[in-house]
Amino acid sequence: MVRVSNNLLGILNFLTLLLSIPILIAGIWLSKQATSDCEKWLQKPTIALGVFLLVVSIAGLVGACCRVSWLLWIYLLVMFVLIVVLFVFTVIVFVVTNKGAGEVVSGKGYKEYRLGDYSNWLQKRVNNTKYWNNIKSCLHDGKVCSNFANSYVNDTLEKFYSENLSALQSGCCKPSDDCNFTYVSPTVWNKNASAASISNPDCDAWSNDPNLLCFSCQSCKAGFLDNVKANWKKVAIVNIIFLIFLIIVYSVGCCAFRNNRRDNWK
């Protein structure tokens, strides 16, 4: 008689098997449709995740339902490694996103972002030229600043200052406030010879060219990190839920493995 834990493990892995199919199809679709660096970057991890879930779920399904002990042992080993890796990753996410936040600007609806406020590990990532060039390509392909310009094109200076801008919009699509540039439109600012702050390198990095803007500014890197920080914290919460699920599945798998061994010894 097949034990309850074997049946339950089989059902859970069958559901995972069904989940892996659309993920794999999505990865293959991205590989065919990719036209930007962002899309090309997404396709590989998507395909890898789909293949991983497919292989592991088949191993768990066969091991539990057909009572193949050695296959179930490999499945449990992979699950254990996955639990450890996910736990370590979640801890790292909380550590590296612990620092950094936007600075409130008096009389403005948006915040300013400083790269030095974020963790050294994150700063090193965005200060890598090759890495940052890929990010800039993604920001440009995502039309972050072109959509920003269209949304606030009719704003007067006073109205613009009251807007609640996102971290990416504030850091990448406009110059820093301490540059004291003259406002023309959301993405067009005239540089003044009498700018109060000449120590901020972002003031020289700013360009009215819609393809450049402040994408090379430290504030843009900081805005990106603030966005990453917010998203990673959401991912960490999902990871905790997923960890609990994996631990439950692993426990059920251990019971199924014990059942297989008992049946083999009969």
Rank of each mutant, 00 (worst) to 15 (best):
W206F: 14
D226T: 00
S185Q: 12
N208S: 14
S176Y: 06
D204A: 09
N190M: 14
S216K: 10
N208A: 12
A167N: 02
V228E: 01
C179M: 11
G223E: 02
S176N: 14
P210C: 12
F181Q: 14
A196T: 15
A205Q: 10
A222V: 08
N231L: 09
S176Q: 13
P201M: 06
C220P: 02
K233W: 03
W206M: 06
K174T: 15
Y183G: 06
V184M: 12
S216R: 09
L213I: 08
L212H: 13
D178Q: 11
T182Y: 08
G171C: 07
D204S: 09
D209M: 10
N231W: 05
K229C: 01
S185F: 08
S170V: 09
V228W: 01
A195R: 15
S197F: 10
D202R: 01
S219Q: 11
C214Y: 03
S199Y: 12
K234G: 10
N227V: 09
P201T: 08
P201G: 03
P210D: 10
W189G: 01
I198E: 06
N227P: 01
P210W: 09
T187S: 08
K229T: 07
N231V: 09
P201Y: 05
L225S: 02
W206Y: 15
L225D: 01
S185C: 12
D178F: 09
N231R: 10
G223C: 07
N192S: 15
K234M: 07
G223M: 06
P210G: 14
K191F: 11
P210V: 14
D202E: 05
N227I: 07
A222N: 03
C172A: 09
A196Q: 13
K233D: 00
C179G: 05
D204H: 03
N211Y: 08
D226Y: 00
D202L: 04
